[in-house]
């Protein structure tokens, strides 16, 4: 362990020059991941970053760990192979709203459903950045982009609800303007056994600047986000004077002393759904923090448990066993 404890964030920086646009929200995420991972006690050689295609997907090149920058949308499928091949690895997926929810949507829901032990960071900037500004599956209706010059008519996904609906065992959200919060969420994700889905609201300065300002800018974030903390009342506002109360299936704003207590101690995704529904209620803050963390059977562990069990039961197979199997006969 002593060896591992000395890992510093800079040990995880590769020699490649970081090439995101100056001011891009991605920088904050890179710093936060390097900080978090350095402190997790995971040997550097066991860290694997897998990405698809998009601005965010350049991420593996900037980490001095094992990394695989793959093809558009397929990071989850590749990472499933990596983790199933060697469950000792700590496998991280870096993806975006286009990569992970559009072209890679199928792999996303299925890796969450299986609960493969993968840490998925979805950079949501509500736009296609690398292709220079087309609407994405999280772009709000009416947004003008290069492919929606008079406003998008595509109804967007709510990534949190998509992940919950796919049965994700860990779902969280953080923002690129609050490094401490991001670090705490990433730590929780890293500590979770199973798929961890983390949505990061990320600003694309070039093609969608200010898309999240209403919620994440320094001036607005206290009033317009509510931090969910396990076991704590859901309080928000500059003066911490407002709260959120859950009344059956609805969330409402109330005064701080009437706020409901947010708890992860439940075996149902419903509270997380109710919380995520705040996104769609104008005038109410959007939730950030860990929205679901539930222990569930982990795919890659079970795959290997079955192998171990079969070896235990039938003995380790040899070439002789598989080739000289079934009915054989001898020709003299």
């Amino acid at each position: 362990m002593s060896d591992l404890n000395v890992l510093k964030p800079k040990d995880l920086k590769s020699d490649q020059e970081v090439r995101w646009c100056p001011g891009c929200g991605d920088y904050a995420i890179l710093n936060s991941v390097q900080k978090t991972l350095a402190g997790m006690g995971i040997p550097k050689e066991n860290m694997v970053m897998v990405s698809g295609i998009g601005c965010s997907s350049r991420f593996p090149y900037y980490m001095d760990t094992y990394g695989f920058h793959s093809i558009h949308g397929r990071a989850n499928a590749i990472a499933t192979g990596v983790k199933s091949a060697n469950p000792d690895l700590s496998v991280w997926i870096i993806t975006g709203d286009g990569d992970g929810l559009s072209i890679g949507g199928n792999h996303m829901i299925h890796s969450l459903r299986r609960n493969v032990d993968l840490k998925i960071i979805l950079f949501n900037n509500r736009i296609y950045g690398l292709t220079k500004g087309q609407y994405s599956p999280t772009t709000p209706i009416g947004t003008r982009t290069k492919t929606s010059p008079v406003g998008s008519v595509d109804r967007p996904f709510n990534p949190i609800q998509l992940a919950l609906g796919a049965g994700a065992s860990f779902v969280a959200r953080t923002i690129d303007t609050k490094p401490k919060h991001m670090a705490s969420v990433l730590e929780a994700a890293a500590a979770h056994k199973g798929s961890a889905f983390v949505e990061v609201l990320q600003n694309c300065v070039i093609f969608n600047d200010g898309a999240w300002d209403q919620w994440t800018s320094k001036a607005n974030r206290d009033e317009n986000t509510v931090e969910l903390v396990d076991g704590q009342p859901m309080i928000y506002g500059k003066d911490k004077d407002k709260g959120i109360s859950f009344d059956s299936c609805h969330a409402n704003t109330v005064s701080a002393d009437e706020a409901s207590v947010w708890t992860l101690e439940h075996n149902s995704p419903v509270p997380a759904f109710v919380a995520s529904q705040l996104d769609h209620m104008p005038g109410l803050p959007i939730p950030i923090g860990v929205m679901r963390a539930n222990d569930e059977p982990v795919y890659d562990e079970d795959v290997h448990a079955q192998i171990a069990q079969e070896i235990e039961k039938n003995g380790k197979g040899t070439l002789k066993d598989i080739i000289y199997a079934g009915d054989t006969w001898v020709v003299k």
């Binding site: 695989f68 590749i78 499933t80 192979g81 990596v82 060697n86």
Partner: peptide
């Protein structure tokens, strides 16, 4: 893709 991931690993 999972097979490629398996080979990488």
């Amino acid at each position: 893709c999972s097979a490629i991931g398996g080979s990488y690993a």
